[in-house]
Write a protein that binds this DNA or RNA. Structure first.
Lengths: 273, 273
DNA sequence: GTATCTTGTTCCATTAAACGGAACCATGTT
DNA sequence: AACATGGTTCCGTTTAATGGAACAAGATAC
């Protein structure tokens, strides 16, 4: 039924397959039985079985014996702890997001580039303090989001050239920039002004202003955005926030760089008793 | 220098080794260079190199080319998203923790059993709404925490017999139950009353009451606790909260079970635009 | 400016592990 | 009792991982 969703995961031997299986289990979003996975994977029965067994014994998957179904394991949660802390700007940016959110009352996003997609790392919703994990880990299109365009604009040409062919250019709304040419023109403009707008390009009625987070050497680390609805605000009002946004982005970048050179600090194992 | 921290990670072949390397990278808590890992791992140079290469190409690690150092990759963050949502009770329990916290003004913990250890999944600190990730993923001893004992008490005897020998029975405070016998006596009492106390067994001056989260079939899903200090409150006052705590635990269990049988709902890929 | 060291990468014959077809077992069905 | 269906184990074959050693590339020392 589900069919196998992608033969794409090329294959660094056994490890690649094991991780592919892990992804497939995670993608189900619920405990999944052997036979379901079997149907959704290209692997022969015995192989899949051994792979699952290995992952389970490693704690990457958990086997519910009552229901005889697999789910992501606790080891993954422990790893997540570590990954979240370092793999991303999230922990550094957190207080800055809080401040921006309090100050503007608007929705704040933090994102990083993951291939040709945007990976949201954190979010503040002025009103309800939204569950972080409900947002973190989400992916979205790069060509029609403020954060996406802000990051693309400051990528080296070589990277950009590699990424553009991977994009869908799906026309989410009438305003979506749906060709490489229009996107590139927009990126040039963003480079000039230093910030990007989403003019209802992703969702009707939703607009945002975004700023890239750049290292001192100009490398793209991530992006920040303020989002609102046309019903409540306007592009002009958002534009007025742009300087504050860029300033915050710069502050995050500065901290991120300081953090990279502990050179001696942070020797302790990150995993407490 | 660092020496290799554990030869314990038995070894399901290649996958086991790869995951072991992943753990080691994560444990550093900062970007780490090849040679540092080399020194901290039992693997020969070429092997470690290939392992790192595989993990990197799989997106589980990210290689910063400027600094030529490895850090946990974004794929791990994406997997974390999935793991957190299903592997744990956290998303389901969240609103209940909020309610308990608001109602009691005390610290609230949510934990699951991870082998013979307690894995904290979420926490509420009445005063400052604590960064979730600063707590999630932490592990602690099972024999001298409220949540630990609450869960152990309702485990099938077979599991308990397997787990007890793995415990350290380290005497954290004078009140710590430091032998299997005293622990078992306590567990019997907990089974009788339905809730567990931590009588300064883990940290002096810190007490708590905990209730197990049990499935309708009686399987241990996790535990909930209210923690306070002897300076501010007493065991008696905590005991008065026990019924409310158990009630909440039951409510979480009910939702968790409903969640297990969507059978059709939640088909969408958790990955939004 | 050459020698040397430290750090990271590639080779390749050896060895070990993954593979997968098929047989098998356990439950639940007609 | 015969038969699915879903899951697990066997075992000869195939493929991939291994790791010692040689090799490149910067960084330091001389």
């Amino acid at each position: 039924m589900a069919g196998d969703q992608s033969g794409i995961h090329s294959g660094d031997g056994t490890v690649g397959k094991a991780l592919d299986v892990l992804d497939r289990v995670a993608a189900f979003g619920r405990p999944v039985r052997f036979s379901e996975l079997m149907a959704a994977s290209p692997y022969p029965k015995a192989t899949l079985f051994r792979l699952l067994q290995t992952l389970t014994s490693q704690g990457m998957l958990a086997l519910d014996p009552e229901r005889s179904s697999y789910a992501p394991g606790l080891r993954l949660v422990r790893l997540a702890h570590a990954a979240w802390r370092q793999a991303s700007l999230a922990p550094i940016a957190r207080p800055f997001l809080d401040a921006l959110s309090a100050e503007t009352g608007e929705t704040v996003h933090l994102a990083q580039l993951d291939g040709a997609h945007v990976l949201y790392l954190d979010k503040r919703n002025a009103r309800v303090p939204v569950d972080m994990f409900s947002q973190a880990g989400k992916v979205g299109p790069a060509h029609c989001t403020g954060v996406g365009k802000a990051m693309l604009a400051f990528l080296p040409e070589a990277d950009l050239a590699r990424l553009i062919p991977q994009m869908s250019f799906h026309r989410h709304t009438p305003a979506t920039l749906a060709t490489p040419a229009t996107l590139r023109a927009e990126l040039a403009e963003i480079r000039r002004t230093g910030h990007a707008f989403d003019r209802e390009e992703h969702e009707p009625g939703i607009i945002c202003v975004a700023a890239p987070i750049l290292s001192s050497r100009g490398r793209v680390l991530g992006a920040l955005s303020l989002t609102t609805a046309t019903a409540r605000s306007s592009l002009g009002a958002l534009a007025a926030r742009a300087p504050r946004l860029s300033e915050t982005a710069a502050a995050i970048a500065a901290e991120a760089e300081a953090w990279q050179f502990p050179d001696d600090a942070g020797r302790r194992a990150a995993i407490g008793g």
